[in-house]
Amino acid sequence: MQRVNMIMAESPGLITICLLGYLLSAECTVFLDHENANKILNRPKRYNSGKLEEFVQGNLERECMEEKCSFEEAREVFENTERTTEFWKQYVDGDQCESNPCLNGGSCKDDINSYECWCPFGFEGKNCELDVTCNIKNGRCEQFCKNSADNKVVCSCTEGYRLAENQKSCEPAVPFPCGRVSVSQTSKLTRAETVFPDVDYVNSTEAETILDNITQSTQSFNDFTRVVGGEDAKPGQFPWQVVLNGKVDAFCGGSIVNEKWIVTAAHCVETGVKITVVAGEHNIEETEHTEQKRNVIRIIPHHNYNAAINKYNHDIALLELDEPLVLNSYVTPICIADKEYTNIFLKFGSGYVSGWGRVFHKGRSALVLQYLRVPLVDRATCLRSTKFTIYNNMFCAGFHEGGRDSCQGDSGGPHVTEVEGTSFLTGIISWGEECAMKGKYGIYTKVSRYVNWIKEKTKLT
């Protein structure tokens, strides 16, 4: 034993070699072989497995989906700052455009905790909710729209109204504003409101030439003092309507412009014939205590009207009353817009006519005020429907199939267009061939041609 100890002390290297040989010859039971080890760690190889990531292109799944990435790591994937920024906006807080917040056709661009709407022409605001041009839906104005110097929408209202708090709607500024039905039992019968379409306001006024200088022999019209197929109006439903009495009662109609003036057809009036105007009328054979009678003290036909040349060209006249009318729910003026808007309103496509005229061709006159909704007829169809001249200051309205029309005794009465609950004068009943005849239409004086003249002559002093 002493000898062994001496050998170990003198030859430590020998001992180490012996131990190493023993270990190498022993069977290893701690580690699995290569094949079995792979069965336990069965993990798919990654895209760049075996390579240094710093030297390969980034992978979106590896960089940002398996674990949260930084902007720089995302930049490695896209290799483009702009594309990385677009991805980053949604990656950080989701897609803010998912709810489609942009209105009126706006395009949404996502941002971090926010979004941006790219608005089409005519709109602005956070969600493109603000109209900035009158060309689109009248700028959301209830009545009139004008573009300011910086191309912003400025709404306005006709006389007797003021802008509401929203700067879009119009509200009454006087007790009985024009064009409004205020009798409670008839307010439910107000005709369907007309909503502004998209309009090209630059070209809204037709490029028409008034044929002022045409000389033409007097034409022989049949029954051209021209509501057939209409309905009984309720008291106060058309408070701007008046009836004219002269040699015979209810020979023509008219509309209240203001307390002192009536507008009617020029062919209705004769110099030297006494005319009485009755406002607030409903049943011409009954006294309903809503009527107001006034005498006409002055007749002003349009300066281009000449019955000797043509009885229905420039067929418009103004009547001055001896005493002002007292405005109330049964006696209310009709609204008159400017030339541009009167023309736009007419193009809405349908209007209402009213009167006490004959209820059928050569038949009896109506006792109760009649009204009828009539569609506008395109000019080409209008011209083809008659052998008589249709001037540019006239328009056609009615039904091709016949059966409904204005008729004798309705002449001078109103053709009105309702705009968001307020009625505007767009025409004056003038003439036609018979009444409600198939293929024939009622012919009306186009008020847009005469609004400046009306307003100039009827100013209240």
Rank of each mutant, 00 (worst) to 15 (best):
V359E: 06
M65W: 06
N138R: 13
Q2G: 15
G50Y: 08
N104W: 03
D212P: 08
F345W: 06
L376M: 13
K438S: 13
I210E: 14
E285M: 11
I454K: 01
G236Q: 04
D33Q: 07
K438D: 15
I40D: 05
I309R: 10
D223I: 10
Y201I: 10
T445C: 03
R75T: 14
Y161D: 00
V56W: 02
G160S: 07
G351R: 01
N104E: 03
P120V: 11
L60S: 14
E98F: 13
T218S: 12
T276P: 00
S365R: 12
T81I: 10
G179A: 00
N213V: 10
S220V: 13
K347C: 03
Q216C: 06
A192I: 09
A279S: 03
E231A: 07
F388V: 15
E98P: 04
I275T: 05
W88H: 15
P333S: 05
Y161S: 01
K311F: 05
N80R: 07
V269R: 02
A279F: 02
W431K: 08
D322C: 00
R358N: 08
E67I: 06
A37P: 12
L32R: 10
K446L: 03
L325R: 00
A26R: 01
N283F: 09
I262A: 03
N36F: 09
G13S: 13
F121I: 05
E433F: 07
I428H: 03
E323P: 04
I7Y: 09
A207D: 08
Y371S: 09
F395T: 02
S430G: 09
K455G: 04
I390D: 09
L41A: 15
V326S: 15
W240G: 00
F123H: 12
F399Y: 13
T389I: 14
I390L: 15
E124R: 05
Y305C: 01
I429K: 14
M65H: 14
S448M: 03
N295F: 03
A207M: 14
C435M: 03
K247P: 11
P172M: 05
Y312K: 06
F395R: 02
P101V: 06
D200W: 09
G253I: 13
L41D: 09
V368L: 08
S430H: 05
A233N: 07
F238P: 03
T276H: 06
V416C: 06
P324T: 04
E76G: 15
V447W: 01
H361Q: 05
E420Q: 09
F224K: 12
L189R: 10
N38M: 07
C119G: 02
T218P: 14
T81V: 10
V257K: 01
E401S: 08
A192F: 07
F121G: 13
G122Q: 06
D315E: 02
E420Y: 12
T133G: 12
K188S: 13
A380E: 13
Y391I: 04
L369M: 15
N343L: 04
P333C: 01
Q96P: 06
P375D: 07
S184R: 09
H415F: 15
V154G: 06
P324S: 06
C69F: 03
H314Y: 08
G409N: 14
N328T: 10
L163W: 02
M437F: 13
N59W: 05
G21N: 07
P414G: 10
N213H: 07
E61A: 09
G236D: 03
C97V: 02
P120N: 14
L383D: 07
R191S: 13
G50H: 10
T342N: 03
A317T: 03
L367M: 05
S187Q: 09
K293Y: 13
W240I: 01
G351I: 02
T158A: 11
N59D: 14
N48V: 06
N313G: 06
L32S: 13
I17V: 07
V243M: 06
W431V: 14
I284F: 13
I256C: 01
E323Y: 06
Y330T: 03
S11D: 03
W261P: 00
I300N: 02
S107H: 10
K234I: 13
I112F: 11
C97S: 02
P235Y: 07
W453I: 02
N343F: 03
F196V: 09
L376R: 05
I299C: 04
M394Q: 05
S430E: 04
L376S: 05
E456S: 10
V174S: 08
F55V: 13
D33H: 09
K387C: 04
E259T: 06
E116D: 14
V377H: 03
C170G: 01
K137R: 13
L32P: 07
E76R: 15
E54P: 09
L425G: 00
N328M: 01
N313I: 11
V202R: 11
Y305F: 08
M65K: 11
L460S: 08
K260D: 02
Y201T: 12
E270L: 05
L19W: 06
E35R: 08
V4R: 12
S329N: 15
K146E: 12
H34D: 09
E165N: 09
G402I: 11
R449S: 14
N147F: 09
K234F: 12
G357E: 14
Y91W: 04
Q219P: 11
W453Q: 00
G94H: 10
V195R: 09
S220Q: 08
Y352V: 06
V296R: 00
Q57I: 11
A173M: 12
L244Y: 01
C145I: 00
C117H: 02
R180H: 08
N104P: 02
F224D: 13
T225W: 12
T186G: 08
V263M: 03
G439P: 06
P177H: 02
E54Q: 09
L325N: 00
V181S: 11
Q57G: 11
F71G: 14
S184H: 11
T81P: 14
V92T: 10
W118K: 15
E340N: 12
S448V: 03
P120D: 08
E54W: 05
W240R: 01
S25I: 15
N104D: 02
T133E: 15
C268G: 00
G363F: 08
L103G: 13
S411A: 09
E82C: 03
N36R: 09
L103Q: 11
K152A: 11
L325V: 03
L460P: 13
E10A: 14
T218V: 09
N5Y: 09
Y450K: 02
D315H: 01
I344P: 02
H302Y: 14
F221Y: 10
V447T: 06
T417C: 04
C69A: 04
S430P: 04
F55K: 15
T389D: 11
V326C: 09
A26C: 12
V242T: 03
P239D: 01
Y312S: 04
L460V: 04
K51Q: 15
E98Q: 13
E281A: 10
A173N: 09
S448Y: 03
L60E: 11
D212F: 11
I316E: 00
A37E: 05
K457C: 09
E281W: 08
T417V: 10
E434V: 11
